[in-house]
């Protein structure tokens, strides 16, 4: 039961990895090969391991994202309050489907798991800002402010 390289390093040494990945993703929009390799070197981990960690978490994008990330909740409370219509309105407004980035690079659009705003359903986040009690008609106004 000798700990592997991965495990041996895990004692505190690796503890900063997630915050470091978040920090990098926050500043650069996404995690590319260079930034992951850099962190791999810093934490004495193989690149595949850093890649494995990054791709596990929804907020650590590996592919380039738009300047702003729209995350619409697709879980039950929002679903019951017709999140589908809000999703339709964003699609129409930006001309992109969930999982895509607008051509001008301004917005990425994602459907996400519950964001804890069920009392204001349907809800979405743009970057870290929460928007609740959404209506399809109100979407254009919100997007215009970005």
């Amino acid at each position: 039961m000798v700990p592997s390289k991965k495990e041996a390093l895990s004692e505190n040494g690796r503890a900063g990895l997630l915050p470091a990945l978040k920090d990098r993703a926050g500043r650069e929009g996404s995690l590319n090969r260079e930034s992951m390799s850099g962190l791999a070197g810093q934490y004495h981990l193989p690149l595949n391991e850093v890649y494995g960690v990054s791709t596990f978490y929804a907020f650590l994008p590996v592919l380039p994202t738009g300047k702003n990330i729209i995350r619409v909740c697709r879980c039950l409370p929002c679903h019951l309050k017709d999140a589908q219509a809000v999703i339709g309105s964003i699609k129409k407004e930006l001309g992109i489907a969930p999982g895509e980035t607008s051509r001008d690079g301004k917005f990425s659009f994602e459907l996400v798991s519950c964001i804890g705003a069920c009392d204001q359903a349907p809800a979405m986040m743009i970057n870290d800002k929460l928007y609740g009690d959404l209506t399809p008609a109100g979407i254009a106004e919100i997007l215009k402010s970005y």
């Binding site: 592997s4 090969r33 193989p46 595949n48 391991e49 890649y51 494995g52 791709t55 596990f56």
Partner: peptide, 18 residues
């Protein structure tokens, strides 16, 4: 250590490098 698990859930995959 050239292999790791990447992605999540049903999309999990054994990955090497990037």
């Amino acid at each position: 250590d050239v292999l790791s698990i990447g992605y999540r859930g049903f999309k999990s995959k054994v990955v090497s490098g990037f």
